[in-house]
């Protein structure tokens, strides 16, 4: 299978701090891949480099055979990468539908003159986009009666869903989700897990997920990469990661792996 995204030696330094250090990383086309690691490991920084918000200090990022380094965020979006944010960044005073329609910006063609003349093409595109935005809201499970609500007035869970709808509106081949279930209750988390699966299965969109909820990660991922203090310390199948000593140590501190091992042995005896 081909890789939709490949990074080689990606590094990001903020002054003296190395937030991401020499990371080689692949995402297979059509997979659900997770990026995990303790707080401050550099996961969000890594996303920001892929999406053009940060320029890597060193290394290469290749998406579908095309280098992304140096591209502006909107070019990356146009190339086919959509994303959500760890701290929700909706357009607070725009309605849900408008938020989604903003996501379609790169896929729309209307120019100033066409808009001023209100030509048929522009009118049709506008109507189609609105229609599609409503469909996307429905797809992520936002109630139709909420479509014209200003996004800041939506309940928290709906805001998370709306962010996903907005990212889907950019028509991505690769969707980056930064802690999509943060702050959700177990039922909402379960629904969102379903949604992520459906996005991959029904729309064929490759998914790269940052997540702290281990149950979700182990449940849904086909490959997992672990970052700790900017460095990749492990990658593999969920079953490999679950028992990886370095990963357990990164999460629970030094000596924890040995203890965990002992416990399993005692439990087994």
């Amino acid at each position: 299978m081909t890789n939709i995204l490949e990074t080689r030696g990606v590094t990001k330094q903020f002054g003296g701090l190395t937030a991401v250090n020499d990371v080689n990383f692949n995402v297979r086309q059509g997979s659900i891949t997770s990026l995990i690691g303790p707080n401050g490991a550099g996961k969000t920084t890594f996303f920001n480099m892929i999406t053009g918000l940060y320029v890597p200090t060193a290394g290469s990022i290749v998406f579908s055979g095309r280098s992304l380094v140096g591209l502006k965020p909107h070019d990356v979006t146009a190339a086919g990468i959509g994303r959500t944010f760890q701290n929700i960044r909706l357009f607070a005073n725009m309605t849900a539908v408008e938020n989604v329609m903003v996501g379609m910006h790169t896929r729309m063609r209307a120019g100033v003159l066409g808009i001023l003349a209100n030509v048929v093409g522009v009118r049709r595109e506008e109507a189609d986009s609105r229609q599609k935005a409503h469909e996307l809201l429905d797809y992520v499970g936002l109630d139709a009666s909420r479509a014209d609500d200003v996004s800041k007035n939506l309940p928290y869970g709906d805001q998370r869903r709306l962010e996903i709808a907005r990212a889907l509106a950019t028509d991505p081949q690769l969707l980056l989700l930064d802690e999509p279930t943060a702050g959700m209750n177990p039922q909402e988390t379960a629904e969102l897990t379903q949604l992520i699966r459906r996005i991959r299965d029904e729309r064929g969109i490759t998914i790269l997920l940052i997540e702290h909820d281990m149950k979700l990660v182990m449940d849904i991922s086909e490959a997992i990469t672990v970052l700790d203090r900017g460095t990749k310390i492990a990658e593999g199948l969920p079953s490999d990661i679950r028992s990886n000593e370095q990963v357990i140590e990164a999460y629970l501190g030094r000596g924890a792996a040995a203890m965990a091992q002992k416990q399993t042995q005692q439990g087994g005896a």
Binding site: L53, P73, F91, V102, A110, E126, A167
Partner: peptide, 22 residues
């Protein structure tokens, strides 16, 4: 229009607007 929405998005959150393709 598409442009008007882009303006509002820019006003609301410039970084997110860029990341959404504007």
């Amino acid at each position: 229009s598409r442009l008007g929405r882009a303006w509002t998005a820019l006003r609301e959150d410039e970084l997110a607007a860029g990341a959404m393709g504007i």
